[in-house]
């Protein structure tokens, strides 16, 4: 009885502000005639309209390009990170070049990507890969370089086979950092898909948003913005679920470590 009460209070604390904010927006904008801030009710109905009528033509391509770009980033990033992390001389040789390349904001490459790939999915995927690849790469390298020497001693003294060493020791040991890198990549990927849909595109949620802004259809623009927010939020939540499952051991380990020290 008491715990359910405690739980519902906790839930209430979490949700009251978002509800109040939403309600305030709804009420304040209800009779709005402002061009820029249409009533929330109209925005919501536009969200429904966009989702139902333009799912296949715009939402799906956005998701596909994002998914493809992120998958390629993760695969290349982890593979290159393994190589550079396991071969220190290679890393010290490439480090300055990599630091420079990753300092280029992905959006700054849009003009070049236009030269190279023209307009289309290839360009968008390429931009995502270039922007989202770095956090995975750098975190994989850091993760591998940070593996405890004792773990390496264990692996050597028990003559663990190279493949087992890689898949059962190196990758899991580096996984907390690799996953932290992927997480940054996911949010960068969402930014870059939107950016690439702004600059030269005929489809995508970003394209809908920019087009409607140009045509002063503010309700559609807000609807698209809300959809992008939901997309960003959902990708984050989805990622947290995956992380939660994969890194169960890591939380457990840290939990006991803390308990032991304090």
């Amino acid at each position: 009885m008491k715990t359910t009460l405690g739980k519902s209070t906790a839930l209430l604390t979490e949700v009251w502000l978002p509800i109040v904010a939403l309600a305030a927006w709804w009420i304040l904008s209800n009779k709005s005639t402002s061009l820029y801030f249409p009533p929330l009710s109209r925005i919501f109905s536009k969200v429904g309209e966009v989702v139902t009528t333009r799912f296949a033509s715009d939402i799906l391509p956005s998701l596909q390009n994002l998914g493809a770009g992120l998958c390629i980033s993760v695969i290349i990033g982890v593979a290159c990170g393994l190589l550079l992390g396991l071969v220190p001389p290679l890393y010290s040789a490439f480090q300055p070049l990599l630091e420079f390349m990753r300092a280029i904001p992905g959006v700054a490459l849009l003009p070049i990507a236009l030269f190279l790939f023209g307009i289309g999915s290839d360009m968008k995927v390429a931009i995502i890969v270039f922007g989202a690849f770095w956090p995975v790469l750098m975190n994989t390298i850091d993760g591998i370089r940070g593996i405890d020497v004792l773990i390496k001693d264990v692996s050597r003294s028990y003559s663990i086979k190279p493949w087992d060493h890689l898949t059962r020791i190196v990758l899991p040991a580096a996984s907390p950092q690799i996953i932290a890198g992927i997480r940054i990549s996911v949010s960068l990927g969402v930014i870059l898909i939107v950016a690439s849909e702004y600059i030269a595109s005929t489809e995508g949620i970003g394209y809908i948003q920019l087009l409607s802004a140009r045509q002063y259809q503010m309700d559609v623009m807000w609807a698209a913005l809300l959809l992008l927010g939901v997309l960003g939020y959902l990708s984050n939540v989805l990622f947290r679920v995956v992380e939660h499952r994969l890194l169960r051991w890591h939380r457990g380990l840290r939990g006991t470590d803390l308990g032991g020290q304090k």
Binding site: A21, V107, I191, V194, A195, Q209, L225, G229, Y233, S235
Partner: peptide, 15 residues
Amino acid sequence: LIDFLSTIPSVSVIP
């Protein structure tokens, strides 16, 4: 609220 607002891809605020 902060969670949601911070995960909105910031470039989409540009329009």
